[in-house]
Design a protein around this nucleic acid. Structure first.
Lengths: 195, 195
DNA sequence: GGTGTAGTTCAAGCGCGCTTGAACTGCAAG
DNA sequence: CTTGCAGTTCAAGCGCGCTTGAACTACACC
């Protein structure tokens, strides 16, 4: 064969239980508007806990060459996967970082900001136009104004969520990396298992 | 003509500023995984503050007959739009309720529950299978367990958000209906019932 | 130089959900 | 009964984003 090294370390085919985990993470990540395969790749890397080549990933997850390239690049940009050049092998090897949720939080926040800024600008322009036109009844203007208020309320609620999630996820990061978060006798946080 | 009543009350074509509002709400509602046209219809009904027929909506928002029928039925099922038979006209008239966010919160919560329950079940099954197979290294089992913990953490964060959002939106409802929310510095008992 | 493998890019294809519009029911007036 | 409008349904069409796979670059070894 051409590459005895790679051939020797042929990727282990994915097991049934690994597939369950991979698809579960894929489903969640898809729900948060990322690509399913991003979640699948991260999940497998994290689960196995050792480096895998692009080729390994391609076979284990039944992806095309191109898909692996795109997905890994995106995960790398977000800092949830890193790529190392191993000595024993000419190929790149990927391994999972543990701060998946930090990335999710960051990206969601950016998306939300963009959305909210656009909407706010549109509502304000609408209000200006409506006032300028002069023939808009006061009750309609009042409702328009209330919608702006609603937008702010929603915005604040989402930001509050992201903030809280970020904090909670601070614990989650530790959970993923194996470091136990400080046990606070808060609400039912007794879920954390001994390492 | 055939129907002098309807002809006389021809729907006012949508103005530029109304379009801005309608599209803004459509964008937000779409972001929350509802149909854009659901947001557009609700927004126009709410903004104008008076009843509109299916035909009015069709013209004002450039929708097809079928689309109006589907969208209004869905909005009705969620309780954010109601339908009344006017005396002056044989047709149904729609008008907007003000508790849009209550619906959004409810539906999002349902979706999230479904997702989380499925994921939890899958991860638990995976853990059982992995243990049963016997040849899974302990560190991998540990990571699998940690993923379950992460799932719980995320779940709790989302539920916290929805809870908070629901409360905040209690105020928002009042905002939309014109009743000013009481400025309570603390959350919790801010449930305002005008009736 | 040539050969082979690793990885990237992007136009074309595919899948999936939303929208359309024609056929349908129902009702009221003539 | 017929006519005409209001509203519903659903198969087919369309749009949009993800995936594919072939052509490409890059690099290592001979």
């Amino acid at each position: 064969m051409k590459s005895p090294r790679a051939a020797a370390e042929r990727a282990a085919p994915i097991t049934e239980w690994e597939a369950l985990v991979v698809e579960a993470v894929g489903t969640v990540i898809e729900f948060w508007r990322f690509k399913r395969n991003q979640g699948r790749v991260w999940a497998l890397l994290y689960l196995r806990g050792r480096e895998m080549t692009a080729h390994d990933l391609q076979e284990a997850l039944a992806l095309s060459k191109g898909a692996v390239s795109m997905v890994t690049r995106e995960l790398e940009e977000w800092g949830v996967v890193s790529r190392v050049r191993s000595d024993a092998d000419a190929a790149w090897h990927f391994h999972a970082e543990t701060d998946l949720m930090k990335m999710v939080g960051r990206v969601i926040e950016k998306r939300e900001s963009k959305l909210v800024l656009g909407v706010k600008a549109d509502l304000e322009r609408a209000e200006r136009l409506a006032r300028a036109s002069g023939d808009v009844p006061p009750d309609v203007l009042a409702r328009l104004h209330r919608m702006k208020t609603l937008a702010s309320v929603i915005d604040r609620a989402v930001r509050g969520f992201l903030h809280t999630a970020r904090l909670d996820v601070g614990g989650a990061v530790s959970v993923l990396s194996g470091v136990l978060p400080v046990r606070r006798p808060r609400r039912g946080s007794a879920r954390i298992s001994p390492g």
